[in-house]
């Protein structure tokens, strides 16, 4: 048994990271994003974002129970119960703000502001205010292989107090380059 030719998993990492990137770019339209780049972005000031990965959380019985759906089992088409949907999964994403002090004299302040934007967006995504309106819309996972795109899940920031680890770093190679590095733990659910 092999995967069908042209197989695309609409609920995989591809959809997850694509959706997260699209959300950040949409919410912060005035900054430059260099996606999947762990080093200096191609344009400054700019964000470099890359996924770092984290161990699999495994599942609890209730997750499996809630998540079992009739889906593509891989053996006989849409016949199997797939324990995928409803499972909570996690990953670590590095989001770095970069600027060069030799080009922009206020680079340090700039990277701090860029850090603030990211933290504000991640904390407030999907959060509701007193009147019941979203402060910022939730981060949905979309299947971009369909046209129009289909909503298949949701991403949220780890609600514990150490979900975002941050450090201001002066680049040891070129001291003019200042960066603010955030290591963010996110959770996601797929609920096709």
């Amino acid at each position: 048994m092999t995967l069908p030719v042209g197989f695309k998993w609409n609920a995989g990492k591809s959809a997850l990271m694509g959706s997260l990137y699209a959300y950040l770019a949409e919410q912060i339209p005035d900054e430059f994003f260099d996606f999947d780049n762990p080093i200096l972005p191609t344009k400054l000031p700019g964000y470099g974002i890359v996924e770092k990965g984290l161990y699999n959380l495994g599942t609890y019985a209730l997750d499996d129970f809630l998540g079992y759906k009739v889906g593509f089992s891989g053996y006989s088409g849409l016949s199997g119960l797939v324990p995928l949907y409803g499972r909570k999964d996690q990953t670590l994403v590095e989001i770095s703000s970069w600027d060069d002090e030799s080009i922009h004299p206020e680079a340090v302040g700039k990277v701090r502001q860029m850090r603030d934007k990211i933290v504000y967006v991640l904390y407030n995504a999907g959060r509701v205010d007193d009147s019941g309106n979203f402060v910022l819309p939730p981060i949905k996972i979309y299947d971009y292989f369909t046209n129009p795109k289909t909503e298949i899940g949701v991403i949220y920031l780890d609600p514990s107090d150490n979900a975002i680890n941050e450090k201001f770093v002066v680049d040891p190679i070129n001291q003019n380059i200042k960066s603010y590095k955030l290591l963010v733990r996110i959770y996601w659910y797929e609920y096709i």
């Binding site: 080093i39 200096l40 161990y55 590095e94 970069w98 770093v169 290591l183």
Partner: peptide
Amino acid sequence: EFGTSKMSGQYFTNKARYKGEY
């Protein structure tokens, strides 16, 4: 751990901390 402008950060202490919680 944190990387440089030419090298990706590895964040090994953070990875171990998250695993440690588990």
